[in-house]
Amino acid sequence: MFANRLVNIMLVILVTVTLIGVIALVVITQFLQPTSADGEPTIDEVIELNVETEEITTNLLSNDIIRSKFVIQLDAQTGKDEFEKRDYQIENIIIQELSDRKASDFNGSSGILDLEEHLKRRFNEVMQSGEVVDVYMRERVIQ
C-alpha cells in the first residue's frame, strides 16, 4: 500500500481503534439503555393494566345519591384477570364505601383521595394473585 511499513502499521492501528470506539458507542447507546421494566411503566403498559368499573349509583349517608365510575390500575395481567372476575365483590366494596360517606365528603380533593386510598386497601384485601396499584375516581355526580 504505502512505501513505508511504519505508516501502514499506524493506519491499521488507527482504523482498529476507531472501529472499537464506534462499536463501544453503539453498544452503550443502544443496548445498555434502561428498559421500562427497570423503571416506571410506559403509559401504554399502564392503560393495558387498567380496569374501568361500570357506572355505580347508590345512596350516600346524607340521603343524597351518587353516580360514579372508577378506573383501577393493577400491577400485572394476572391481577387484572382476577380483578375482572371479582367484579361483583369490587362493586360491593365500592357501594359499602360510598354508603358510609356524606355528600360534603366530596367537596374537596382530600375526600376523594381518602376514598381512593380506602378502596385500594379494601381491593387488595380480596386480591390473591395481583395487587391494585392505584384507584382513580373517573366520574362523580351527586344529586
Rank of each mutant, 00 (worst) to 15 (best):
V22M: 11
E48F: 14
R67I: 02
G21C: 05
S99R: 10
S110P: 01
K69E: 12
T16W: 08
I56D: 09
F31A: 05
D134L: 15
Q33P: 06
E117K: 09
I23H: 11
V26L: 15
F70N: 01
L113F: 14
D105G: 04
F70M: 04
I9N: 13
S68H: 02
I9P: 03
F2L: 12
S110E: 15
F2I: 07
Y88W: 13
F2D: 13
T16Y: 08
V126Y: 03
S104Y: 08
D44N: 14
R101Y: 05
D134T: 12
D44S: 14
E52N: 14
L60I: 05
E97N: 10
L49V: 09
S129G: 10
R67W: 00
R86H: 09
I13T: 12
L113Y: 13
I43S: 14
I72E: 00
Q77C: 01
S104C: 06
F70I: 04
F123I: 00
S104K: 12
S36Y: 09
K102D: 06
D64P: 00
V126T: 05
E117P: 02
I66C: 01
N50R: 15
E131A: 06
Q128H: 12
E84L: 11
I13A: 15
D100P: 01
N92W: 08
S110C: 05
I65G: 02
I95M: 06
D87A: 05
H118Q: 13
